[in-house]
Each structure stands twice: as C-alpha cells, then as structure tokens.
Design a binder for these strands. Structure first.
Lengths: 112, 112
DNA sequence: CCCGTATTTAACTATCAGGTTACATAAAGC
DNA sequence: GCTTTATGTAACCTGATAGTTAAATACGGG
C-alpha cells in the first residue's frame, strides 16, 4: 500500500486516533494505552501494528514494556497533500460567507 | 461512521484521490471521470458514492449526466484535526535537521 | 529455574471494501 | 414509443479488517 493511503487508512479509525491523542501527551506502554478502551489487549496490539506500519508510531523496548512514541512525520505528508485543496474549501467558505451576508441583508431589507 | 473517519477512509484510496484531483480541475461527469482508470464503470460509481457520503463531492443532474463537483469542506476538518499535531512533526524535523547538521559537522571534522 | 507481568501470535469468526458481470433506470431525440 | 447514451443497482466473489479467546514469548526478580 502506498504511504499516503496507509496513513489515511490508519487515521480512519477513532480508536487509533484516540491512541495518537494519548501519545501526544507523551510516550507510554501498551497496557496503559489500552486502559481507556473496552477492548481486549490483542485488539489494541493490532491497532498499534497498523499505526506502526503507517509510521505514525515507533516502539522501543524497556524491560517487558514496549513504550510507544508518536511519530508525526506521515501527518505532514497528509498536510502537504491537503494543501493543494485549501483554496477550494476557502473558496466555499467565502461563498458561504457571501450567502450569509446576503441573507442578513435581505432580512434587514438592505438588499437590492 | 463519524464524519472524520468517513473522510479519512474515503481519502485512503488512490483511485478516489485521483478522482478528487481530477475534480479540482473542474466539475465533470462519471464517464469522463472513469476514463483514466482500468476499472469498470460500476466500480467508479461505488467510489463516487463513498466520496459523496463523506461529503467530498456533490452530484447534480444535467440530462442523463450526473456532474460531480468537489466539496472540500471535509478536508478542512482533516486539516483542523492535523493542526494539533503540527508541533510534533515540526519538532521531529528540527531533530532531523540537527542530526543532519551534526552528521555534516562530523564529516568535515568540525564537530565537538 | 520458575513466576509474574507485559505483550504478541495463532486461530477463528464476522463484517466490510473493492472489484466483477448482468440487469435496471433516466433522459433525450428520432 | 423505441433507441441510444449515461448512470445506478443487484448479486456475487475475494481479500482485508476488527474483534474474540487461548497460547506463546520476553524479561526481571526471587
């Protein structure tokens, strides 16, 4: 799978995004990561593998713990990809803005 | 499925991203969208449905054609979500930068 | 060396995603 | 109304995902 697709599909799961959010607070181990979820440990282990293969986390070894660390570089790829579309959503926001302005103008009777 | 997950998973497919890239050039119909792909029309139709459900395109009606239009608003959501991680990839780039500088310094014997 | 803790792997199941072909529907034009 | 063109839906297949439980592995400490 191409890297961008791997990143997008890793991010397409709320559990995995929550894991990343937790890791943004600092490196931690698997059991602690699993804590908030109503899910078996192997399930979390699989999610971690997905994140790892996408390059979004790295895993070390510290005695019997496997500390996970956030690696945000792939997100930068996503951000770069998105960039070329920015003008489109900004344009549509402008249109929305315009629409809302017209709406308001009509309401107050100031519109042509 | 939550909107963010829907957007990420819609974007996790190269065919769909290519469709969006085409639509960035302007609105077009299904047959023309399908043209570059070695894939049946129903397959494209399914991809379009995924994009539509994620809110990334909208479809009109013009005689027997269904013109598709890019709707980038969900990308803005993604962009917003990514924003909170920006400092992480910027930090790691800084570390990479530092690493490369050190490497260069070592090479030229100017290090430490 | 055995034990407890942390984590992964194996085997299995159910659902979903992405593709196919065949058929159905929509609209225009003769 | 029939035909053509454009598109969508149905039924089906295959492989991937996401979860489960049970067993295996890795490591530190008595």
């Amino acid at each position: 799978m191409d890297p961008l697709s791997a990143t997008f599909s890793a991010l397409a799961d709320p559990t995995r995004r929550a894991i990343l959010a937790r890791l943004a607070l600092g490196q931690t181990n698997v059991t602690e990561l699993a804590e908030p979820f109503d899910m078996s440990l192997p399930a979390i282990s699989k999610h971690l593998k997905v994140l790892e293969r996408a390059g979004l986390i790295s895993r070390g070894r510290e005695a019997q713990w496997r500390p996970c660390t956030l690696q945000a570089a792939p997100m930068q790829e996503v951000s770069g990809w998105l960039e070329s579309y920015r003008k489109f959503w900004e344009a549509s926001l402008d249109r929305l803005d315009l629409y809302l302005q017209n709406l308001k103008a009509e309401e107050t009777g100031n519109d042509k």
